[in-house]
Design a protein around this nucleic acid. Structure first.
Lengths: 297, 297
DNA sequence: TCAACAGTTTGTCCAAGACAAAATGAATCT
DNA sequence: AGATTCATTTTGTCTTGGACAAACTGTTGA
């Protein structure tokens, strides 16, 4: 059997060391074995369960109710979830998912390319990439695909979107927008979808990729004369940290610069954050753009 | 003044909470203030110094000698370093660096594109991207550019390389190679450079992007019928963890599958790791490919 | 239906100690 | 000189148990 030390488990599951230890104390799970030094060693099956737990937490479940429950109960929760929404039952999306599942990267690439050409960049992002991205996350949760397949999918889509975005001449238009994610958020697809949606509208987009420290975002926004800073969050990003970081970033940013935040991590937030424009479905970004332009003299 | 809690400092500097606390105990630096709860709050200037320390450690310095030293001493170390190698004094590279420094993204893009067309993909990777990447790291160390500029550079190069790689038809040739980085390594440029070098040689490359868990790499390699697994490390990756993770991956991989590892983190390793092919300068990858092909029946 | 309240849950932080892996430097042998 | 062995420091990571505020829950009252 394969045993992992606590640091490896933190990296593989995204659950912090402190949290792993406190769960063990409170919910009697996980229960790692110990090595000669007395240090925790987690069996692979417990790590698998932790990954599942992480995903269920992202979906809105609470630790007290699910950590400690046996595996069957958790799987039942997954099944219950996947029955509720009829999977949006889009046959095209399902076909793409199947290509991901079987590692058919050439077919996947060809099919995506076809959709891109047929729909155009904006609709491709909104009608193919966004739902497909959700569907891949869902399929992972159900155990139908693995992490490797998820990564493969991300790479393929990224190649396509970056090629398409790069082939459009830099606009030099307004507003000038700086795009990035905060430290800890490594998912870039949300960012690329926003860029794909806004570039055809004549927005001047500059992406810094993922995980830019707050201070550097603020400095770049000031120095580059940007009008808007846009950051994106995946469902995996802890909402608690997202809110704190957004407040902090807002404080460091010049008041004249707008701050847009979007993505699943902020879904279901009751109170909006002062000075932060929340954009949840991807389509909202066009409305936000129209609003921004209307507010300019 | 701007004060950051310990978790934010960990994310911004990459130095773990435990390490931050133990440095404070041993070297009397950093010395954060405390809030009402008694929790650490780090002033921005100490965080800046921590970032510099991190970089110096990556360059081979040892904590006992540099943490605790005043800022001027550290800056002197940086200067001493940059005088030693005459910066490879390539005028073209310097011009590109200047474009990065000034946020001239349009010019940067155009110049890179020009080099790519002129040199071809392989030489572009080896003669432009690789040295430019090093030079950007060096410029960051000297404080000539910030993190935002570094990210901007990475994005631009990534767009170009991905477009170029994507425009080549999938080869279906041999060997079949799986490329990725290990959890904790987020730099993708090394991977893209390898892909750019090998695809024109007819190698069938499949990239999983960054940070794939070991178990998923092994499973994907088995399921996809790959001949070679290639992983890349940046200078920022702790060599200690790299060696441990490579041993672990080697153990999980089928014996018939070769494991290639490259990148700055393994530079200066005395003993090679059993069953791992180490590739340090980018050019070596072609030699390794020739060797692999020669060994096939 | 919404707002305010009290109660519970939960992630993160602290302290000081411990230890093994890695780096260093000295000594010894080809 | 160059390589190999050994002892000594250095250094990051892990341990325990306690503590607390922010966020969430569910109830009460308008």
């Amino acid at each position: 059997m394969n045993l992992l030390p606590i640091a490896a488990v933190e990296r593989d599951t995204g659950i912090g060391k402190d949290t792993l230890r406190v769960w063990e104390r409170r919910y009697a799970f996980p229960q790692p074995t110990r090595d000669a030094k007395g240090e925790r060693l987690y069996p692979a099956e417990q790590v698998d369960k932790l990954r599942l737990l992480r995903r269920l937490l992202d979906q809105g479940h609470r630790p007290g109710n699910i950590v400690g429950e046996p595996l069957e109960t958790l799987l039942a929760l997954v099944d219950a979830r996947s029955e509720a929404p009829p999977a949006a039952a889009n046959a095209q999306i399902e076909a793409l998912i199947e290509a991901v599942r079987l590692h058919h990267s050439a077919e996947l690439r060809a099919a995506l390319q076809q959709h891109l050409v047929k729909l155009g960049l904006q609709r491709f992002a909104a009608e193919v990439v966004a739902p497909l991205s959700d569907a891949v996350g869902e399929a992972w949760l159900q155990g139908r695909i693995g992490v490797a397949e998820e990564h493969l999918f991300t790479e393929q889509v990224q190649n396509l979107l970056r090629s398409a975005i790069g082939s459009l001449a830099p606009s030099g238009g307004t507003p000038r927008m700086l795009l990035t994610t905060l430290p800890g958020e490594e998912h870039i697809l949300g960012l690329l979808m926003v860029e794909a949606t806004l570039i055809p509208e004549g927005v001047h987009c500059v992406s810094l990729g993922t995980q830019t420290p707050l201070a550097d975002i603020a400095e770049a926004a000031r120095g580059g004369g940007f009008d808007i800073v846009a950051v994106s969050f995946s469902a995996a990003f802890p909402a608690r940290q997202a809110v704190a970081a957004l407040r902090q970033l807002r404080a460091q940013l010049l008041p004249g610069i707008a701050l847009w935040a979007g993505g699943a991590a902020l879904r279901g937030k009751r109170r909006p954050i002062d000075g932060v424009c929340q954009i949840d479905p991807l389509a909202d970004v066009l409305a936000a753009l129209a609003a921004w332009r209307a507010a300019q003299p």
